[in-house]
Design a binder for these strands. Structure first.
Lengths: 366, 366
DNA sequence: TTGAAAGCGCTAACAT
DNA sequence: ATGTTAGCGCTTTCAA
């Protein structure tokens, strides 16, 4: 197998080497290999042969310096270990590869400062565009800066105020209204909700109850938007909201979700149903239910935002809001690449559909 | 909000702009900003101020052209949507960021040709090193080429023959022996195994039964190695292997695993236990068990390779081999970065420990 | 259709 | 300690 008697070239072959080997100028060699300009077919073949012989590989760095394009997309997600982002990343990666782009991946851990650093890194590396799931809907200077300096930004899963950019979103408020409406329709009147609620605005939810004007949805993070949907569903059904049933973890931490769930289940007047706003919250809440030996749906109906494969493994199967996550990733990449090709088109907000899959974990309260 | 009367600079500031603004040469500006060479503190401050004012961002492309380093790691995994690779990627990303590296992610889908393309892309982009989970243990020319041309390679989760490179591995054969040994100890004599077995060598398992010499473990892919462990465990216990209980899917496809499992469960002499060799196989096999209404562990004991969070959600909890996946990712990145800093040290193979977590899905056969 | 030469933005020699 | 100059490998004028 590996039997090269000649020690491998330390220095990689450059286009100048290829040109010399083929007996042409480096400009011509570049044209032959890079498919630009005019080259006689015969020469092209000769250059190709020489490149082959030398094991030539173009240096995209040098190319990018001139063309100003790196054919690279930067992605800033919260946590690639979260199946939500993993699926999205797969969608992004598939489209990117199809169109000849590479993808640089960074994790922000929902931290605005880390996100800013990540964006800075991507900008230094001259990525052609950035797909970001912002850690905050309001602290977005770094995103605006990127966009203004000519690196287009596509928002993923989270909207932002004061930034005109392409975005791939779902209607969190509406989907949540549907899910909670399902529980209300079944007759539930005490529905717990477990949510992160870490952004300042999301934590002002007490103001949303009653007759006050609704907050601007775009300023909310997903967990806030989903809580808003919860409140709206109650309002629509004429069912009062009990603030004691609303539990915020303050972070994306399954154990915190577990603890908040244990608390709410131990109330004197416990809920008859529970709604978890994403897969992290679901993880902790489900664990808590198991620990307490809660029977689902006998003691408690359970609705989760985000469908996961295991939800059909457990007994009963879990009713869930399913988001087209892989598709969202694909769309995000497609929007970005389209913008790179035609920068002038108006930024668009694509809203993808969420589906409530009713399974065995929801039933009328006893 | 967005009210900038002055149209944003189209062209990004370069070091020449900064130098002029600060009244120094571009070399000095470079030294001040890049922390190399000598600069008077006062000048450094002046340059920093100028850079700040102009919103200067170094162009890493240009820097990389000279230094020959991009501070970027390339990663070639099979599928980032698979939790195994997602966790590993998180580990890699964390270490990379800590040490100032970016990460380019590509998916190979277990396809050698795609893997080769991915490696080529990474090489063009001049990554400093590559972490790869090879799609084949024998077709590895592209990896050898990368290594020989000066881009170090770290093998992740899968060994390879004929390539001396750093590697992060687990002892699949041994771990599998432990898991199957656990079942044999409980008294099981008919244990099914569901595995990919897609590589040519992995499919020659019939030759491993009996007294023939064992195959070279390094030539096997994980599913083959795990099957080898299964066979060894049987041999050690003096229990004959029934080939009818060995089912290969030929691909990483949960539905294929589901079908193979249905088949084996419908045998005239069905197994009393089942062993699945990774999370994809587990997914399909568990689904099949649910469909057939199999009672675990009453009708069937269940052992899975790869621990997943949901395994404590289902009743009974699933006995599983837990791999330190996140840690494996970290170690891979650390090995690569160490090699970048000191290329001369001998390549090492790090073996991380796998733990059998005995839960409720395994019991003595009825 | 080809070649010579300039230059992308930066750093590394080499002066001073 | 600072400036001048020469490139890194490639593409893009501009001539021929």
């Amino acid at each position: 197998m590996a039997s090269s008697p000649i020690p491998p070239e330390r220095r990689r072959a450059t286009i100048a080497d290829v040109a010399k080997e083929a007996g042409v100028s480096s400009a011509t060699a570049g044209r032959a290999l890079g498919d630009y300009g005019y080259v006689r077919e015969e020469i092209r073949e000769r250059v190709r042969k020489a490149a082959e012989d030398l094991g030539y590989r173009p240096n995209s760095l040098a190319r990018s310096m001139i063309t100003g394009r790196t054919n690279t997309i930067g992605v800033v997600g919260a946590d690639i270990a979260n199946p939500f982002f993993a699926s999205a990343m797969r969608g992004i990666g598939d489209v990117a590869r199809r169109d000849g782009f590479g993808t640089i991946l960074t994790n922000s851990d929902e931290d605005v400062a880390l996100e800013g650093e990540a964006v800075g890194l991507l900008l230094q590396k001259q990525v052609d565009g950035i797909i970001v799931s912002p850690a905050s809907s309001v602290e977005t200077d770094h995103l605006a800066e990127a966009a203004e300096s000519g690196t287009p930004v596509v928002l993923f899963d989270r909207d932002v105020v004061g930034l005109t950019a392409d975005a791939v979103l779902t209607d969190s408020v509406g989907a949540s209204r549907t899910a909670v409406g399902h529980l209300l329709d079944l007759g539930h009147r005490r529905i717990a909700i477990i949510a992160e609620l870490r952004a300042a605005l999301d934590m002002e939810w007490r103001n949303w109850i009653g007759s006050a004007p609704a907050p601007d949805t775009r300023m909310l993070m997903p967990s806030g938007a989903r809580l808003l949907g919860y409140i709206q569903a109650h309002a629509a059904a004429g069912v009062p909201v009990d603030p004691a049933l609303i539990r915020g973890t303050g972070s994306y931490d399954p154990n915190a979700a577990r603890e908040r769930t244990l608390e709410v289940l131990r109330l004197d007047q416990p809920p008859t149903a529970i709604f978890t706003v994403d897969n992290v919250m679901t993880h902790g809440a489900y664990q808590a239910c198991r620990e307490m030996g809660i029977r689902i749906p006998g003691d408690l109906s359970f609705v989760a935002y985000d469908d996961m494969e295991w939800m059909t493994f457990v007994e009963p199967n879990i009713t869930a809001l399913s988001q087209p996550v892989y598709e969202m990733g694909k769309v995000a990449a497609e929007m970005l690449i389209r913008r790179l090709r035609s920068p002038e088109v108006e930024p668009a907000r694509r809203l993808l559909d969420t589906t409530l899959i009713v399974r065995g974990s929801t039933a009328a309260p006893r």
